[in-house]
Amino acid sequence: MNWLANLGAWVIEKIAATGRASQVLYGALVAVPRPIKNTPLVIRQMYVVGVQSLLIIVVSGLFIGMVMALQGYTILVDYGAEDSLGPMVALSLLRELGPVVTALLFAGRAGSALTAEIGLMKATEQLSSLEMMAIDPLRRVIAPRFWAGFICMPMLAVIFSAVGILGGHLVGVDWLGVDSGSYWSIMQSTVDFRADVLNGVIKSFVFAVIVTWIAVFKGYDCLPTSEGISKATTETVVHSSLTVLGLDFILTALMFGIE
C-alpha cells in the first residue's frame, strides 16, 4: 500500500507544481501592459540570455553543419548523389537541428543561469524585498527574463541554421569539391520558405516558451538554499531537455509527418 500512497503523493505534487508554474506564467504574461517601463529590462535580459549565448550557438552551428556535410557526403557519394548535399544539410538544420540543438544549448547556457540567478535572488531575499517594496517580482524579475528568452531563442535558432549551412558549404564545397552552384541551387529548389523555414521557427518559439518557462519557474519555486538552487538548476536542464525532445517528436509529426 505504501507505494500506492507514494504514487499518489507524487502525482499530487506534480499537479501542484504545474499549478504554481501556471501562476508564474500568468503573472509574467499579464506584465505585458507596461511596455515602457519593461522594455529596458527586456533589452538588458536579451543581452544576458541572447547575446551571451551567441558564441556557443555560432560555434556549435558551424561545427554541426561541417560534420553533417562530412557525414552526408560519405553516404551520398556512394549513390552519386553528392549534389543533394545542400538540401540534406539545409533541411536537417532548418527542420530539426536548428530548433532542437539551439533549445538544448539554450537550456544549458541561459536556462540554468536564469534559474540560478532567480534562485539566488530568492535566497538573498531580493524577491521578498521587492514584494515588500510593493513591486511584483513576477513583473519586475520574471516577466523580462521570460520575454527575453521567448524573443532570443528563435533568433538564435535561425542564426544557428544559417551558420550551419555555411559550415556545410565550407566542408562540402570548399574541401570535398561538391559544385557550389548545385549546393545552392538544389537547396533552393528543395527548401520551401513556409514549410521548412517557418515551421522550424514555429518549433523554436514553442521550445522558447517551454525552456524559459521551466527555467524561470524552477528558480522562482526553488528552496532558497544552496542545495535547493543547485537542484533547481539541474532540474531546469534535465526537464527542459527532455520536454524539448519529446515535444519535438509531436511537433514534427504534426508539421511534416502527415501529409
Binding site: S161, A162, S189
Partner: peptide, 24 residues
C-alpha cells in the same frame, strides 16, 4: 542596447539569408 541591436541585426540577416539564399 548597441550589442543587443547588433544581435537582432544578425538574426534578421540570418532570416534573409534563409529566405533568399536557401529557400525558394
Amino acid at each position: 542596447e548597441l550589442v543587443v541591436g547588433f544581435f537582432v541585426a544578425l538574426a534578421i540577416a540570418a532570416v534573409l539569408m534563409l529566405a533568399f539564399n536557401v529557400a525558394n
